[in-house]
């Protein structure tokens, strides 16, 4: 509230305000006019994610950097390819974390 509760002008304005209007069938009319809520369709998102994963995998499968990075990582060597792979994974994890936090905050 505003710090003007004792202001005579505030008191006059509040007294002059008629206050909430009585329902008198208004809510019923609105409820009758309410359209069915469109459910959020999530299959395009799932299909998009699946298509992106498959495309990404298909394009990277032939790239030597992925194989080199993976084998270097598996053998414990920190080569440039392994670093690139680690950075990509870390980046995607951070992105997923940020998205989850943002979605959680909205709920």
């Amino acid at each position: 509230m505003n710090p003007h509760d004792d202001d005579p002008i505030d008191a006059l304005l509040r007294a002059q305000f008629e206050g909430p209007v009585r329902d008198e069938g208004f809510s019923e009319r609105v409820m009758q006019a309410l359209p069915p809520r469109r459910r959020r369709v999530d299959w395009p998102v799932r299909a998009g994610i699946a298509a992106a994963v498959v495309t990404c995998w298909a394009s990277l499968q032939s790239a030597p950097v992925l194989h080199e990075g993976w084998s270097a990582w598996a053998s414990g060597r920190l080569t440039a390819s392994a670093m690139a792979l680690l950075l990509a994974i870390a980046g995607m994890s951070l992105l997923a974390l940020w998205w989850s936090v943002a979605e959680g905050g909205e709920a």
């Binding site: 305000f17 008629e18 206050g19 909430p20 209007v21 009585r22 329902d23 208004f26 809510s27 609105v30 409820m31 309410l34």
Partner: peptide
């Protein structure tokens, strides 16, 4: 939603 509507219609209409 109907409850929300009934709770707030008076002031929104005012």
């Amino acid at each position: 939603f109907e409850q929300l509507l009934r709770r707030h219609q008076g002031m929104v209409r005012a």
